[in-house]
Amino acid sequence: MDTAWSDSYKWIVAWLVAIVILSLLNKTRLGHVFIYYWLWLLIIFLFVTQYQYIVGVLGPLGTPVPTGGQK
């Protein structure tokens, strides 16, 4: 089997399984709360660890655009 295709296949299956598990978990109130605060933790973790990168990426967006562009 082609390596690239088998890798994609694995990822597709993994995502489907994750979506099914999260959907089942979200049916209960406790699971819903768990997913909610888990996502908050993920966002905070991402922001704290990637803070410099995010600021670096967002920084140029506030700068004026060069006249005529730069191709």
Partner: peptide
Amino acid sequence: LKTPGGVGFLVFVLVFFVWVV
């Protein structure tokens, strides 16, 4: 516990961060 905003809002924020990072 309350879940203001819901899960959809958090998923949107997460996807935006990934889009940025």
